[in-house]
Design a protein around this nucleic acid. Sequence first.
RNA 1: CGGGGUGUAGCGUAGUGGCUAGCGCGUCUGCUUUGGGAGCAGAAGAUCGCAGGUUCGACUCCUGUCACCCCGACCA
Length: 586
Amino acid sequence: MLRMSTLFLRTLREDPADAEVPSHKLLVRAGFIRRVAPGVFTWLPLGYEVYRNVESIVRNEMNAAGFQEVHFPALLPREPYELTNRWTEYGDTLFRLQDRKGADYLLGPTHEEMFTLLVKGEYSSYKDLPISLYQIQSKFRDEARPRAGILRGREFVMKDSYSFDIDDAGLQVSYEKHREAYIATFSRLGLKFVIVSAMSGAMGGSASEEFLAPTPVGEDTFVHCASCGYSANVEAVVTVAPDRIDASNIPAAHIEQTPASGTIEALVSYSNRDFARDDRPWTGADTLKNIIFVVAAPDGSESALAIGVPGDREIDTKRLEALLQPSEARIFEESDFLKFPKLVKGYIGPSVLGENSISGVRYLVDPRVVDGTRWITGANEAARHFYDYVAGRDFTADGIIDVAEVRAGDLCPTCGSGFEIERGIEIGHIFQLGRKYAEAVGLKVLDENGELITVTMGSYGIGVSRAVAAIAEQSHDDKGLIWPREVAPADVHLIAAGKDDAIFIAANKLAGELEAAGVRVLYDDRTTVSPGVKFNDSELIGIPTIVIVGKRLAEGFVEFKDRRTGERQDVALVDAVQELKALNEN
RNA sequence: CGGGGUGUAGCGUAGUGGCUAGCGCGUCUGCUUUGGGAGCAGAAGAUCGCAGGUUCGACUCCUGUCACCCCGACCA
């Protein structure tokens, strides 16, 4: 039993100045967490209670799925991360340190290498597989910008699992098992979530899905189709390419003077005035905008890449980076243009783009640029544009690249209706890693023919500490937190409201009986604060059921209040234990 | 790393060169109070982020520096 009179707790009446999002404000105000350093937090007793509940649900579901728990150190030597090149590739995000001898260490940001090496050290036969191992561990990432309290810290707790299989079919099975376990876990945590297809990101590999908890403060943007249920991270959305168009009736391409056409808007309004089309007005979507990037490969080599998108859309750099991984892209600067005299900034057009063109710059276009589409696009001379420049007839790109910004109303690749755009917190991520890490560390086993085969892996993460914040984010009101029963710091928040000895005697007795009945109780036994303070604290803390022993005690009643709905009802004191026990069993 | 902002008591804040740095919350003492963050009386608590400079005088102006927050680029 937690007693408020002695509990290490100080609730705050005002929001902390450095908090922006509701979960951060409320977790601090309710005395669940305190900041120690940017992105680094201490769990206070109530917060730690919630954290442990979340952790034990996660552990419980992992065990139920047949995965086995191990525990690696957070402090790791450099060498394993050299094998996979991540000592370098992780860059500044890695917390590095040295021991007294000057040997390099790191604080683990994730543990693929360690798990892979562990299995390599113990197992060497196909008969040992499949196996899935997991740990619940603090991870350290020196994020460029930690934010939103515990939602994105530099030290955070993650449950990470890894599956080891001898072939792709096995990996598929392991992946599905984790997927099921994740669904069970997040459901029990009381989180609303969607599963979206995702890019595999820096980890390499193929199939990948994210579990996102929808909330306005989420850092991930995803699309959702209300009619067929398709969901995808914006990075992974597949743009629907229109059908090819018969271009035989389109006039021949011609170059026109287009003064003051530095922006798409100016170009469109100018075009409608002086070069109106026969059927309808020109729009930004009729212009083909060509943006040049410098793509830097991990080995440092650079190359130019031209991307053509409809003029009414920007290039989504997140989508671009995701596609180019592990290379990085930056937009052309003045100094880059000097190296490519054929490229006239602001008037770049397909006629000088492409691997076989005079510029030699690789040219990729948006999927909407199908054969027969008719464009206004740069003529590679200042203040000049091509009109009726038709894809497939007047130019051909080197390929397709799907990196234009995604918008609400864009077409769902599955059913063709318009989809919506929402934000979510990434609470879990599962993906089929494949053999990347197994190859890097040499994890092979003998198959039934006595041949060495490389193991194939899956990798699966749950942000455990983040889940606490995600729950808070999804479940609160203007008065405070509202915890789902299974993660709440207690089942019942018992308040002794009044000053009569009789009230405290009855409340003490009830608290004891509840505890004996296995109901977790937070008992506000403070004699020095007024009932109003206790009520406000109980709403801020967010335990699902509030029981008040107060003015109706004389008639033999206590009051039950549901934190979420605010509903109150009087219950006979003699029935209280039984009823509260029953609440727990639902 | 780019852009913006802020550093004053445990928390939230006021203070445009001039007296002893002010207020609310919280804390402590005493009395009163107990169904919606109580009242009265008193008290403790601040090297005004740090360093340097200008000035008779700096929380206030200048320079530098550090830290933190927010928006972007990157991630459970």
